[in-house]
Design a binder for these strands. Sequence first.
DNA 1: CAAGAATATTCGTTGACACGAATATTCGTG
DNA 2: CACGAATATTCGTGTCAACGAATATTCTTG
Lengths: 116, 116
Amino acid sequence: MEMNPETLAALGEPNRLRIIELLRAGPRPVNDIRGRLKLRQSQASQHLKVLKDVGLVEMEPRAQQRFYRLRAEPLKQLHQWLDRYRHIWEERFEALDEIVEELKRKEQLDAAGKDR
Amino acid sequence: MEMNPETLAALGEPNRLRIIELLRAGPRPVNDIRGRLKLRQSQASQHLKVLKDVGLVEMEPRAQQRFYRLRAEPLKQLHQWLDRYRHIWEERFEALDEIVEELKRKEQLDAAGKDR
DNA sequence: CAAGAATATTCGTTGACACGAATATTCGTG
DNA sequence: CACGAATATTCGTGTCAACGAATATTCTTG
């Protein structure tokens, strides 16, 4: 499972991240996004273009408005990718480490004990 | 729940992403990372510095080597953040929409039926 | 404490990108 | 088909970040 840096880079830009967060609630036309996030018109369009190019959003024209909505795939994929790091925050490994450490210490004590 | 763009931006750089993926298996000294990913020495150090600054990794000196390891917090946080988008890829909502649509259609048919 | 290994930091260069203003495009309506 | 609303695209500018080379720092060992 490989994760694609471009998706992450796209999310790494503050205004784009805000757009993603806004779209979580559902599809919106550009002008709505622009208004809520206080962006210039070109800014809104440009960022949406980047997001669309990496596949994070898709667009549906509706008269002269364009509705943008989140696409499931990349978000799901990113989530799955992170799942592979679960062991980092589920402390089992650290606990295991500690147990191993303790065992080592015990063995040493035992070994030392033999000589006493 | 807010997600911080800097973390994502840090992950958005290809070489840094590779470093993160490499560190998933456990802590490593700089030279090991450098070797496996075929980076220049300064590149390795610089990227590791960025990762450390955003808190994605931490460093532990060991003689003149420095071991870098993943930090749980930001990864866990990112995972949780993505959890809030679950409804996007778990099609329940779309399914629900369809059901609603069908119900509407049915009602109309029923209403029409009454007059026949 | 000199020397070497491992790593960090500095610095100049270059390319990419965000921004804003201006212009172009698309589409419904009179 | 002219017009206006909504959006996209282009272009010039400034900033920032990645890179590579060089230098500095840290730490161990003889």
